[in-house]
Each structure stands twice: as structure tokens, then as C-alpha cells.
Design a protein around this nucleic acid. Sequence first.
DNA 1: CGTGCATTTGACGGGGCTCAATCGCCGTGG
DNA 2: CCACGGCGATTGAGCCCCGTCAAATGCACG
Lengths: 227, 227
Amino acid sequence: MLRQTGNQSAAGPGSQRAPSSVPSIAPLFDSIELAGVTMSFDGNVEIFGEGEPADYIYKVLNGSVRTYRVLTDGRRQITAFHLPGDVFGLESAEDHSCSAEAISQAIVLVVKRSALLAAADREANVARQLWRVTARALRQSQDHSMLLVKSAQERVASFLLEMAGRLSGASAVELPMTRQDIADYLGLTIETVSRTLTQLQGAATIELPASRRIVLRNRSALNRLDS
Amino acid sequence: MLRQTGNQSAAGPGSQRAPSSVPSIAPLFDSIELAGVTMSFDGNVEIFGEGEPADYIYKVLNGSVRTYRVLTDGRRQITAFHLPGDVFGLESAEDHSCSAEAISQAIVLVVKRSALLAAADREANVARQLWRVTARALRQSQDHSMLLVKSAQERVASFLLEMAGRLSGASAVELPMTRQDIADYLGLTIETVSRTLTQLQGAATIELPASRRIVLRNRSALNRLDS
DNA sequence: CGTGCATTTGACGGGGCTCAATCGCCGTGG
DNA sequence: CCACGGCGATTGAGCCCCGTCAAATGCACG
């Protein structure tokens, strides 16, 4: 198993190379022999930084990744969580508009942007996939904007439903991220997130066997809050 | 001058056709003879609705357009304002993820989605432009998300700077939208928007000769608030 | 068992929302 | 020319949700 840790920022494929052929399943990365390189990042290690040249495009194979921006006063806003199968880092501009960090240990497929764009020029199918993935990210970003204007209860309920849908789809969720991550994603404080969760637990809407583990007891109540 | 008003929703090019050749300047729409159709919409008239099939892609030639979503409880969140030159309605999915309305009278270039996608399949250059425009919209959506976690003062300051940059770039701005539009864009109430503006006027940061007209007196103070 | 970090819980204050009244602008008609 | 009505915008009063500050609890690891 390959492992590349402590690799700070501006992560192009470094010394460790993947065992050549990676069975890429994603629509964007198959049909082309872009055979990227896989890299592994420890938790809280930067994958790329805001403002850095966007020379690579990434796909989560394992683990989870957060992309975020930092305001001048230090507040951090997480723009998206990326789970296995998700593509991130697609920028049309030269530079990344946000930073990316592994949440816990994550294995990521890395593809040279120039190679992908060249392939897109050659094969219309690749170009179409590239556009679809970007358009889907746009829709998700808009979904996220909708979150940010709701009440704390609505934001937390929406978040739980989103995560339950993306991780397993079952009613038991093993969250990969901390309360601080959740708070920065929802535009709340950790205290408000925590209080809202215990409040939902008190209403028998959810159950909290462990801080990272959440069981959805009453999905319709959550959907009602989702508004 | 062509004019097509009261055209409710699901707006495909209707009976009125443009005087054939439209000098399209936008990167996305030139280099192809997609010679779309221009349509005119009165203020507050729907151009397309959320959930409707996304059969067309649009570009503002004149006037301004808002795209928005409505939450189940009736709250409206404006996702973006589209000014002359802006492209909107690009969806990879079959259906529109939001609704679009003209703010005041607006003239819009309409291009069949299938034609644009076919052209993208034939010409790599078109495909690249399509991707670039979508990626830029993604970045703008993320910028918008950053707005929504700031304080009221910061949101209004950011909004004024954004609009000043997009309309003219000068320090005098003639806003096309109402206070309600601004509030729904910033995730605030009209009262808070209004109070914040008068507050900024009191601090000699801006001037309000008319409710729609705003003069930026102290740009650096606004930048400081923008945080 | 002790240390460190994440999470929870509590008390309190303030920023923005709600409800309501007033103002200002503009078009219409007497 | 002015009165009136309608609508958008402003202003005021009160309250509540959520942020802030602080302390306690739980949990993993040495």
C-alpha cells in the first residue's frame, strides 16, 4: 500500500508512484488512458492551496476531503465535502479558488490538468464528461447556498440528510468530519451544531451513540425541518 | 425592435424571431453559427422555471435577470444576478435547478441546448468555452456562499463592491434591482438592508441620491468591511 | 492514572428578524 | 394644479436565535 504523508501543499504527483494501472470507474476518468497517479494524504494535510496553480484535477478514491476558503479575519468556510467517487479541483482559471485538505487519511487519484484538457480536445466524450462534472458541482454549490440562509435546525437537518444520502444511504451515518468541520460547512458555531444535535436527540429524531455516529430515527421529521 | 412580453415560463423561442444575424460577441456564442434567437421579457416575467426541461441556454444582451430558488416555506433565495454579457441557464441535468426572471425589461439571446452540445461535440473550442463559462459560474456561486456567512454590514459592502465592479466599474452605481431582490440575494431582510445602507451613508462611506442610485464615497472603507 | 483534545452544556449579550407605522416618489384623475 | 392612492423604502420598538465566553464532561492514548 502506497502512502505519501506530510506532503504539504502544491501537491503534484511526487516521488511515490501508483502501481501503474488503476481501475478507474468514474465516467470522467475512464475511456481515456489518463492513468493518473494515486497519492495518499494523512488527515489535516493540505492537498492544494488557494491561489496555487491548478495543474492537477483530483478524484477521491478513499477517505474524504474538504475544500474551503479562509476570510481575511480567519474565519473558514468549507465549500464542499468530497467523498469517494467525487471529483474536485476543477477550475477553469489558472489558480485554485480554494484550498483542499484530507479530513482523515485519504487516497486520491491525481490527473494532470493539461492532459485532461488535451484529451477533451481530442475526444468529445471526455469534454462532455468534464462539463457534466463541473455543472454538477455548480448545482451542489447552489444547494449549499440554500443551506446557508436557513435556521440552525434546518441547516443541521439538511446536512444530516445529505450525508446519509451520500454515505451508504442507510439511516446510520458514520461522519468523517469533526464538529468544527460541520460548523464551518453550515456557517454556524460548534456550540450551535452540538446543541442542535442534542436537541434533535431529545426530540427522538436522531440518536447519537458516539459523537461521530448518528442514527436517523425519524427521517420525515428531518425532511420537515429541511423545508 | 422586437418585443416579446408576457411570455410566461418554459420560454423557447416563440413566434417573434430575431432579424436573423445577431452580432454575437460572447466567446461562447461566436465561432459557431448558432445564430440564436433574441427575445424580450418585461420586468418580473419568468424566463424559465425550476424543474422545467432545460432545452435552451441564455445570454443577457440588455437589461438584467435574476435566477432564484424558492424554499418550501416560500422564502426566495436569489442565486445570481445576470447582467449584459452573462450566460445563464447552463445545466448538465435535464431540468433547470432554478427559475429565471427578468428584473426590468431584458433582451436575451436564446440558443438551443441540443445545438450547442452538438457544436461542442464537433468543435473542441466550443466545448472548452462551455466548460469555462460553467466553471466561472461555479466560482461565482462559491463567492456567493462566502457572502452568506458574513455579517450584514459585510454582505452589503461586498454586494456594493461586486455591483460597482460589474456595472461600469465607476463609483456611481445605478442598481437594477429592488431592496427585496438585494435582501433575497444576501440572505437578509429588506429592513436590515435598508438600515445598513443608511448606516453606511451616515458613516460617509456611500451616498444615496435615490433609492436605486448609490455612490461609493469611500471604497477602502467598503473593502475593509468586505473582510 | 494523567494529559490533551473534541464535544457538550451553561449563562449572557447582541445582531438581525418581526411587526408596525411613516415617509417619499410617481402616476392618475378630478 | 393639487388630491389621492399605491408601492417601495425607511424608521422604530421589541424580541429571539445564535454567537461569545467559560466551564465541565467524555474519550483516546501514553
